[in-house]
Design a protein around this nucleic acid. Sequence first.
DNA 1: ATCATCTTAGAAAACGTTTTCATAGTATTT
DNA 2: AAATACTATGAAAACGTTTTCTAAGATGAT
Lengths: 330, 330
Amino acid sequence: MITTIKEVAEKAGVSISTVSKVLKNYSNISEETRQKVLKAVKELNYVPNSTASNLSSKNKDKVALYIYINDMKQAVDEINMLYLQGAFAMANINHLELVTIFNQMVSDMSTQELTSYLASQGITGIIVYGLNKEDKKILQLIEEQHFHVCVIDAPIVNDKTSSVMIDHQKGQYDVAKSIIEPEYTRKVLYLAGKRNGYVTDMRIEGIMKLQKELGFELNVQYAEFSEKMAYDLTMRYASDVDTVVCASDLMAIGALNALIKMNIYRKCCGFDGITLMRYAGKGMLTCKQDFYDISGNAIKEMERLLSGKKGQKVIIDHQIISIRYEDSYK
Amino acid sequence: MITTIKEVAEKAGVSISTVSKVLKNYSNISEETRQKVLKAVKELNYVPNSTASNLSSKNKDKVALYIYINDMKQAVDEINMLYLQGAFAMANINHLELVTIFNQMVSDMSTQELTSYLASQGITGIIVYGLNKEDKKILQLIEEQHFHVCVIDAPIVNDKTSSVMIDHQKGQYDVAKSIIEPEYTRKVLYLAGKRNGYVTDMRIEGIMKLQKELGFELNVQYAEFSEKMAYDLTMRYASDVDTVVCASDLMAIGALNALIKMNIYRKCCGFDGITLMRYAGKGMLTCKQDFYDISGNAIKEMERLLSGKKGQKVIIDHQIISIRYEDSYK
DNA sequence: ATCATCTTAGAAAACGTTTTCATAGTATTT
DNA sequence: AAATACTATGAAAACGTTTTCTAAGATGAT
């Protein structure tokens, strides 16, 4: 059923080396031979066996997209799918072999074991996201520099590691600034993400920068990116503040529902720009990330790393959008 | 950096064949040798190179999960991620190699080319979902029986093809029956999915079975699984009926919003049990599918097929649930 | 006509495994 | 003690490529 290079060679009346050379566009092949081989390839519908070719040529790169699944499904599915699609689309264009690894699959491995596992799979580069500062295993992997790594959403760069993300600090600053009216704002409740998250800290910097500029009082509470926690914290602290700034859309939805429940009006904004906002976050502002583009860029950046260039920081644009009240069915 | 079987053999003072045999649990190995080898393996952190091993042993199976991305993002992301997670989790348990293929990657290939491509990747089994009756390329692939195929949500079975799904007919029947009050119901609006979808037709059979039983008048409209179309069709036909039965949650949300807009009350139900219902479908009933379990079972079924058994039909349980009105933040 | 150079193509090694087959050594049977 | 069977091991072929090296033949320079 499967055609091998040998059969192509026989059909074309040449050696297998010649066939391989034609397919890899080597120079020293006469046009006549080229045509003969190409004809045979077409007729037999030959596609090189990727396993054999990977084994043979040591230099072929394979990249893994490390997919981080946690318990916060609802918001994260869309983001994960966008990362997946963006990465696969770009990898496809660039003829880069991309595979997925789920965190559960490798959760019980040590760094050492993970390294061996990746190497055994022929993986030379890995794209990670959702990293936090306690993720020792991955951080050590990055530290050791045995693999090329592209980190989404963490400012980690070394010779073999690049960082791709929006400017989270500026994003948080921008969206908060858009809803805060300096003259009427005395106190702001900021619902931050997970403690020790890189993203969490960058966004906190953003709101703090704005605080310094505008001089309001700031109450920072860690809500772990959880809708429920955001709801509870809003219940507890919102009556005391003018504005609730949330580090994620899901938290903003929780906060909004708490505000509705308490029957008080407060300005409120989210972060990410997920589709759920169209259903449950109407009227709010958010900082939209283009996740598809981010992971596409991560692949591009990976290509750069794999070509031997040193790691760098890549910043993707963000966008402040408002979730319109108007009828969504127009 | 990468340890080979040769180094292990040297360290253990045996031949590479012996190392391989130990690792593959062959019988004719003395306990003493076994221990020596295992020790060396551990010390060197050896993991067999999967490329080489795949090339060498022809019988190792590799399965592809065919991920179907279309324009209806919002509802489908969650389902896709559940399929992905369920499949990878089960594949991991069973030590089955699983890769993903996105429809975009292969959309411009003919069946012939797709076949060659899959074969060249060493893929022997493929899991598909979201298939409809015009999907000639995949249908032909199934027909030809060069690959083992597990079809989610289509009743296609042959020697090398199994079908895994809930009983869509019964599911649609059950959920509709749960909201329809026979004595007060004269006419029902049924918003069906995509024309020529296997799922669409099975669910239509379900509502028609109920119609025959209860004798109401039935208006079937194809809403293509689209929220917007469901909204529009509800606007157009709902005032005339007692109940709106929808073939998906997303359509139910569209229908519900239309009912709210028209300010009329009609019974309404969805299908799938996606998380979005908790935000935008409160008070409705739906037929919940366990997508994680379904794809896990697809992997199990694939193992059966790969072991040479003939295809069969596997039915997964569904569940009628109601999306509670009560405060989600309890 | 001789030698050097270039072009083209094939032979063969290599990639890291798995697996078949042969064999040395040991244990069992007669 | 000889014949037989079994156990444990290693040698080597195979998987399907890629790539280096060699060489035959053609072309060009002297």
